[in-house]
């Protein structure tokens, strides 16, 4: 069983590596959709750990994604000369640079997750939904007002002048001075995206199926009973929340280095809702279900481009139909209960 999951993980890494070699011949439009599918699987699976398995309702996943995304593209542009001088511009140099910004983005999101999570998760009840909702909006508004990362205009790179001045837009009075524009580097590809898809699946699967990981489900089912059996429920809730935030940060890094442009509006409330919908539609706590829902909800809008303004209405209708016909989610299990 354990040997099997390790083998499966390693062989999927090899597969991802091999597919990546042929990625150049994939139609660019399909390639983009495939990358977005991967990013959404990372987002939905990491949120599933919080909302599905641990039963805590987080509504701010886009906020963590924004932190990871913005921090990492700021690093890989403002510090581009440093990275290029230190690690070079070859495949390996870029890989090392990307690993550094990936870890930085994930870690920053995790740390903020800790700050937001600890006070709200210590309380019983749905404080987390309200706190995370507010938190994600605050993050967005803060970014909208931060000129170094382009504020509400968005961020696609940085001008570095000879005299050391750095700015995301051309600086008027330095018009004659020569400058170099460092655009967000296109680091994200099939390999990196699906490397993290494989990692999060392995991570959540192994965790949840271990004895220790069953503690998360016990917290969801009955906090008082879990505490009485020796489970530090706060610790379990916080660790699920923080690792979920970490992977949302990673997803943000991948997104930023694929799109090569971030706008605060990419991380608005609707993005958080979209991820929550994937988790609910997939059946809270069902890994396969949530992955399939992430795939479907990434492809669906592509078919519905002409009616894209109505996307949220369609999501809402989908949810209502779901709740009426399959409340356990598309692929979630149903608990049979004998009458007492």
């Amino acid at each position: 069983m354990q040997v099997k999951s390790k083998l499966l993980f390693l062989s999927s890494l090899i597969l991802i590596f091999v597919i990546n070699l042929f990625a150049g011949s994939i139609d660019p439009y399909f390639y983009t959709v495939i990358i977005y599918i991967g990013i959404n699987i990372i987002l939905a699976t990491s949120l599933n750990l919080i909302n599905g398995y641990t039963g805590q309702f987080s509504l701010g996943h886009a906020g963590f994604m924004a932190i990871g995304g913005y921090l990492s593209i700021a690093l890989s542009t403002y510090f581009a000369p440093f990275f290029q001088n230190t690690f070079g511009t070859g495949v390996f140099g870029e890989a090392i640079t990307f690993i550094i910004v990936l870890l930085a983005g994930g870690t920053a999101a995790a740390l903020v997750g800790l700050l937001v999570g600890v006070p709200s998760l210590r309380l019983k009840g749905d404080y987390l939904a309200i706190t995370t909702l507010g938190f994600a909006e605050i993050i967005r508004v803060v970014i909208q007002n931060m000129d170094v990362i382009g504020a509400s205009q968005g961020f696609r790179g940085v001008y570095i002048y000879n005299n050391g001045v750095k700015a995301p837009q051309m600086v008027q009075d330095l018009g004659e001075m020569s400058n170099i524009f460092y655009a967000v580097p296109k680091f994200t590809n099939f390999f990196w995206t699906f490397l993290f898809v494989a990692i999060i699946i392995y991570y959540v699967h192994n965790l949840i199926n271990s004895t220790y990981g069953r503690g998360f489900l016990s917290v969801k089912d009955d906090e008082i009973a879990a505490e009485s059996m020796g489970i530090n429920t706060t610790k379990f809730k916080v660790s699920a929340f923080v690792s979920g935030a970490f992977f949302a940060g990673i997803a943000g890094v991948l997104y930023g280095h694929f799109n090569l442009y971030l706008n605060p509006e990419d991380f608005n409330f609707l993005k958080s809702v979209e991820i929550v919908v994937m988790v609910i539609l997939g059946g809270m706590g069902s890994m396969i279900g949530v992955i399939i829902a992430a795939v479907l909800l990434t492809i669906l809008p592509e078919f519905l481009r002409s009616v894209s303004e109505y996307r949220m209405i369609i999501y809402a209708l989908l949810l209502i139909i779901m709740m009426l016909t399959r409340p356990q989610g598309l692929f979630g299990f149903k608990i049979k209960r004998k009458k007492l």
Binding site: L207, S210, T211, Y212, R214, G215, L217, S218, K220, D221, D222, I224, A225, A226, M229, G230, I231, S239, G285, I335, R337
Partner: peptide, 24 residues
Amino acid sequence: RLFKSLSVKDNVRVSFIKNIKSKY
């Protein structure tokens, strides 16, 4: 107050968590 989404054996399993070495 059993854990209703867990199997019988996993209900018992949860009680071992406080004493195990293999954590997160």
